[in-house]
Design a protein around this nucleic acid. Structure first.
Lengths: 144, 144
DNA sequence: CATCTAAATGCAACAAAGTTGCAATTACAA
DNA sequence: TTGTAATTGCAACTTTGTTGCATTTAGATG
């Protein structure tokens, strides 16, 4: 089931016996963003609306329900609405200047995931694919 | 340069003006393991030999020098000696029972990395590729 | 091999991130 | 409208990571 608005959020929750609360609506709103966000950002965006502890608990719940994904960009994890709702991207991250380049070859990655999960009868729900290194500019100027 | 023993560790360090200290030797020893380890594990293994703070500082340094990689398995990061030294594996992690399956199709992944980094003249140093979902056993018994 | 010094360490104190127990509140089924 | 299990917010706590500083040490130099 796709999470595209508050009603479908409610459906997912009540389907498993969870309630749609004000805190969960606000948690969901905070997640609406084109970029993955840190826990600290989500908490800051929702201050006065959602308690810190409740935010942690609801993000955990959303993750269990497949509503959000935790991805690792650089050093820390960030949160984004799941693949059903938002496009999931992969990146090349430059260790020197921090530039992030989008890999756009989704199809190739998806085929590969299918081949490897089929082999083990594994049902994939989320994946990460991130490459660190040096961008074209920094490769040239790299002191070694 | 490959890190295969204390001497080559020393070479890498002194090459950049860093010293090979007892703490760094012990940090390196703690890293020798077939599995990636958490910071907490490394600290515990080295207690009485390396201070917690020093461990953090040296792991940071080793990462800058390309001696260790930080990878994300499940929820938390773990540390492992770099690709030069240890084989780097990729996994299918079951969200239900926690089972971890090794993906062995390194060649395919490496080709894909080459094709995508070539496209952007990007010099890769490390990558992560992890898939979460449900293993064959848990897929069947999954309550939905 | 003795000396010198920048680099590295350990300690204490702190800051940030995440967790737990519990009493008060709320969604929603009947 | 009411009853109640689920959820929340709060306070207190644990774990994880960071900073400043006085002391120690690796290793370069004579």
């Amino acid at each position: 089931m796709k999470v595209t608005n508050i009603q479908s959020l409610k459906n997912i929750l009540s389907d498993k016996g969870y309630k749609l609360t004000k805190a969960r609506e606000n948690t969901f709103s905070a997640l609406l963003s084109p970029e993955p966000q840190s826990m600290a950002t989500l908490i800051a965006k929702s201050q006065d609306k959602v308690d810190r502890v409740t935010m942690y608990r609801n993000i955990d719940l959303f993750e269990k329900l497949g509503i959000v994904n935790r991805i690792y960009v650089g050093w820390k994890y960030k949160l984004e609405l799941s693949d059903n709702f938002m496009d999931h991207h992969h990146h090349l991250s430059c260790l020197s200047c921090g530039k992030v380049i989008d890999i756009e070859d989704e199809q190739h990655i998806n085929e590969f995931i299918k081949s490897v999960t089929d082999k083990f009868s594994f049902t994939p729900r989320h994946h990460q694919f991130e490459i660190d290194g040096f961008c074209n500019v920094c490769s040239k100027s790299k002191k070694s």
